[in-house]
Design a protein around this nucleic acid. Structure first.
Length: 490
RNA sequence: CGGGAUGUAGCGUAGCCCGGUAUCGCGCCACAUUUGGGAUGUGGAGGCCGCAGGUUCGAAUCCUGCCAUCCCGACCA
């Protein structure tokens, strides 16, 4: 176990918090529920952004930016949307402070806004209000826009990265001439998310659709990807919504079709947030610290020199310089940690804590033998390898690590996903062996609600391409045609 | 918003019951010896004891009020 980190078997929540703090990803801020994302944590987020942004652009989207502040009145225009977000909105009411004459700064009551402004919890309203001016004809469609932004939701209870009051995310907002096209967009973006989470984050996901209860406020259909964390709880990793014509009707966004008919525009929205950082940490990490997938690791390889004299260090430095050039040519990042203020053992522990996928230790003995010691973070194994061909070897190892941690997570999920046909068994498993439970459900919101109240488990999703089979609802015994995925969730 | 806990040096803590100006460890600084898994020694720096009142000759300690944070629930990405 690493210094200052509790074992994850002992207290999973505490382990997660310790890890975020000790690995230098983030820290608490003076404001409740807000966090400071530190450089190391932010550099992982930047890598996520870069990869996602490219995927969005490759599928035809462009970035734009809409304001942080939204007039309060916009929120009342879409009924279910306001209901979904009203309880967690921060509101700006004044625009000036003043000195009260006793050295205190107070709100200047004379500077009260005519109409209060909402700090965006999501941007559908301001964006659809804007799209009204952008769209007149089918020739103006589709609009495929994404924005990288911060949003604020005044949550009752917050958790680093998983649920903070303010969080960073991207939100795509598209406008289409037909329902079919909008649905295709919704599905396409779900695929993009699944592709990213599985192939970059090495986190396996289940693609599916939300039930009516779990649907986004204002959506006709919500698609999602669900991941399973190491404590057996599910985490929603991304959502893609088919909004129908709800927002177009609320904001009066009409277009003239090819046939000369006036109709409302069809919409989608989709987003992933810094919550993905939480998923990344909780899926792979262990008691020694973070385990990062090579594709997202800020430092992919670290080289630690072991030396007694300056000439030895210089010899090692010269060698590492050459290796670095080779690795950089392959697009692999390497850090040479030549700090003489820390000893090698300290550095080893530190890079394990920070999840650097590969570590090279190199000393005079190695320089004489033409070798290095190579240590893998994911398996904690070490091997002595020849310096010759090392760059190629490292390249292969990084690919193996990327795959290995995916396989590990995949197997964990497989071991913790079970089909259950009996309600008592269902309840027992949730307590004794938490994970995904695949079970029949009669399809009613009432049943889903009752199961949630009695067990705290929710329907995470109705998996896409679900096998159709006859069965009985685990709660009511009514007929059902397919299984859905239950779990307790974050 | 309900339940629980905690606020003492950068971090983790002792002291509080029984009032007398704060303990220990890590970290930090200097020097020396060290360097293949979190070094050792010597010396040193660092404190509105969460905040505001009250009791007292005297408060980290007793009393009152407030604030903040974390954990568990309801709500949620």
């Amino acid at each position: 176990m690493s210094k200052g980190i509790i074992s994850k078997d002992e207290d999973y929540s505490q382990w997660f918090n310790d890890l975020v703090i000790k690995a230098d990803l983030a820290e608490y801020s003076p404001v409740r529920g807000c966090m400071i994302i530190k450089p190391y944590g932010y550099s992982i987020w930047e890598k996520m952004q870069a990869a996602l942004d490219k995927m969005f652009k490759d599928t035809g989207h462009s970035n734009a930016y809409f304001p942080l502040l939204i007039p309060k009145s916009f929120f009342s225009k879409e009924a279910s949307h306001v209901e979904g977000f009203a309880k967690e909105c921060a509101v700006v009411t004044h625009y000036r402070l003043k000195n009260d004459g006793e050295g205190q700064i107070i709100v200047d009551e004379e500077a009260k806004l005519e109409e209060e402004l909402i700090i965006r919890p999501t941007s559908e309203t301001i964006i659809w209000n804007t799209y009204r001016g952008w769209i007149q004809s089918y020739r103006d469609l589709p609009i495929l826009v994404n924005q990288w932004a911060n949003v604020m939701r005044w949550e009752m209870r917050t958790r680093l990265f998983l649920r903070t009051s303010e969080f960073l995310w991207q939100e795509g907002h598209t406008a289409h001439a037909t329902a079919e096209e909008a649905i295709a967009e919704t599905e396409q973006m779900l695929e993009v998310y699944a592709d990213f989470v599985e192939n970059w984050m090495s986190v396996p996901v289940v693609k599916g659709r939300k039930t009516a209860n779990e649907r986004f406020a204002g959506a006709l259909d919500t698609y999602c990807i669900e991941a399973l964390m190491q404590d057996g709880k599910a985490l929603q990793a991304g959502t893609s919504h088919f909004l129908g014509q709800n927002f177009a009707k609320a904001f009066d966004v009409k277009f003239t079709s090819k046939e000369g008919k006036l109709d409302y525009v069809w919409a989608t929205s989709w987003g992933v947030s810094t919550r993905l950082m939480g998923a990344l940490i909780m899926t792979h990490s262990d008691d020694a610290g973070l385990v990062l997938p090579p594709k997202l690791a800020p430092i992919q390889v670290v080289a630690v020199p072991i030396y007694k004299h300056d000439e030895e260090l210089e010899n090692i430095r010269t060698y590492i310089k050459g290796l670095s050039a080779e690795l950089r040519a392959k697009g692999i990042s390497i850090k040479f940690d030549d700090r003489d203020t820390q000893r090698p053992g300290f550095k080893f522990a530190e890079y394990e804590l920070k999840g650097v996928p590969l570590r090279i230790a190199i000393g005079s003995r190695d320089m004489q033998n033409g070798t290095v010691e190579l240590a893998r973070r994911d398996t904690k194994t070490k091997e002595t390898v020849n310096q010759e061909g090392l760059a190629d070897h490292i390249e292969q190892l990084l690919e193996q690590i990327q795959k290995n941690i995916y396989d590990k997570a995949f197997n964990f999920r497989a071991e913790n996903t079970v089909e259950v046909n009996d309600y008592e068994e269902f309840k027992r498993l949730l307590d004794e062996k938490p994970g995904f439970i695949s079970a029949h459900w009669d399809g009613t919101p009432e049943t889903e609600q009752r199961i949630k109240e009695e067990t705290k488990a929710t329907i995470r999703c109705i998996p896409l391409n679900n096998k159709q089979e006859d069965g009985k609802c685990i709660l009511t015994g009514k007929p059902s045609t397919q299984r859905v995925l239950f779990a307790r969730a974050y």
